[in-house]
Amino acid sequence: MALPRVPPLYPAQPEEILRPARPWFVALTLALGLYANLLPLEGATLALRPDFLALLLLYWCIKEPRYVGVGVAWFVGLLMDVGDATLLGQHALAYAVLAYAAEYFRRRVLRFPLWQQAAQVAVLLVLCAALVLLVRVVGGAPLPRWTYAVAPLVGALLWPVISVVLQWPQRPTRSPSEL
């Protein structure tokens, strides 16, 4: 009698076929991302805190484009605007552009090893942060300090971790060879 196997906790190979993610799992992770963004942090931790929501949106736009696309990203961005008490629409705009960029890149990104994926993700996250900054500066805000660029890079460093953890429930529990 075979014991039920626990899926391995290392990145899936490109040729490995994963099960589709469940919609409630996607929604739950996005809610957790919003929660992490709403944590009342201050000072250095705030400067280091990556935009978890942008990171998760990017992940699901790349992995499950059927569930998460430009529309979902836009709506979640609107919630983020309300949570931050900023102008309505700035995170919405940035996340919508992010989702579109993910749609554009998604077939290519997954072919790379995780750390190279992280480098490409860094570019996308910086783009997203730059869009928010652009809207703020057009609205008359002063330029922030250079530390503003740190958070997207921290987000990119988290990409391998998030990839491994979030694809864990989708891994098949038995290997295809042992049918």
Binding site: G69, G71, W74, G89, Q90, A92, L93, A96, V97, V135
Partner: peptide, 13 residues
């Protein structure tokens, strides 16, 4: 979709 939601965002802003 991007064009649509982008325009809506700009209108909201």
């Amino acid at each position: 979709r991007l064009a649509f939601f982008g325009l809506v965002s700009l209108a909201l802003l």
